[in-house]
Computed example of a mutant assay.
Amino acid sequence: MSATESRLREEICRYGRSLFERGLTPGSSGNISVRLDDGGWLVSPTNASLGFLDPARISRLDAEGNLVSGDKPTKEIPLHTALYQSRREARAIVHLHSTHAVAVSMLPEIDPQAVLPPLTPYYLMRTGGTALVPYFRPGDPAVADAIRGLAGRYSAVLLANHGPVVAGESLEGAVFATEELEETARLYLILRNLNPRALSPAQVDDLVAHFGLTLPEHRGGCGG
């Protein structure tokens, strides 16, 4: 095993424990994957709590998704596969069952192309915006087609009645973006029906120009 792979195994465990201990994904929910230089992956095993992962038991998959070593991988492999295929720059994916993001996914007013309004600059800077994917049974391969249908425009996807799936150019980046999505969902629920002042189009344009952001279409403020 290379030093890089060993380090990534440790990082998956460290970030997983941090997310679990802060209540961002309960029980054995959620999963994390990292793409390796040879095209294979490291991914958290099925029915494993992110708070108690063992680096030696992390699932190692080859480039075709076949298990090479470690425990049986998460059943959510199809959604990870689809996001990696559509976001070629992605090196890591975090999927959680975080409370506020799941709650937002159930609201009737949510725009599937812009789940959350631009309430803060860091939401746009970390996630670039979030799409809503309809409900699928956990592990259903059909979710892959829904994610591929977004044509790679989103690094953050919210699965209806399920939770967020976020890709990043590093594991740290994916974790930070997932946390920002959850905090923005929390803000949305606090401010819902209060007509909050979101960032204006001009302010969004300024962020795009200053930080070189690539954003899907954003529309509207908090719904009611």
Rank of each mutant, 00 (worst) to 15 (best):
E180T: 14
R9F: 01
Q203P: 10
R192P: 03
G139C: 07
P78F: 13
S2F: 07
R60A: 11
R153Q: 15
L124F: 08
F20C: 07
W41S: 08
F136P: 07
S18G: 00
F176C: 10
V157T: 13
G23R: 05
L207R: 12
L107F: 13
S29H: 12
H100P: 00
L132S: 05
D111W: 02
E89P: 09
A101F: 04
T81Y: 09
A202Y: 06
L83G: 09
G173N: 05
L207D: 13
G70D: 12
T120Y: 02
S98K: 12
A142T: 08
L171W: 01
D111L: 06
Y15N: 01
S44K: 03
E21P: 06
V133P: 13
V166L: 08
A92K: 09
S200R: 06
S170K: 00
V166T: 04
P118W: 02
L159M: 11
I12W: 01
L96K: 12
T178R: 00
I12H: 07
I93A: 02
L199R: 02
A82Q: 15
G129N: 07
A92N: 06
R57M: 01
I110L: 12
G139K: 01
G129K: 11
W41Y: 11
I190G: 04
V175S: 06
L187E: 14
S44F: 03
V208C: 00
A101G: 10
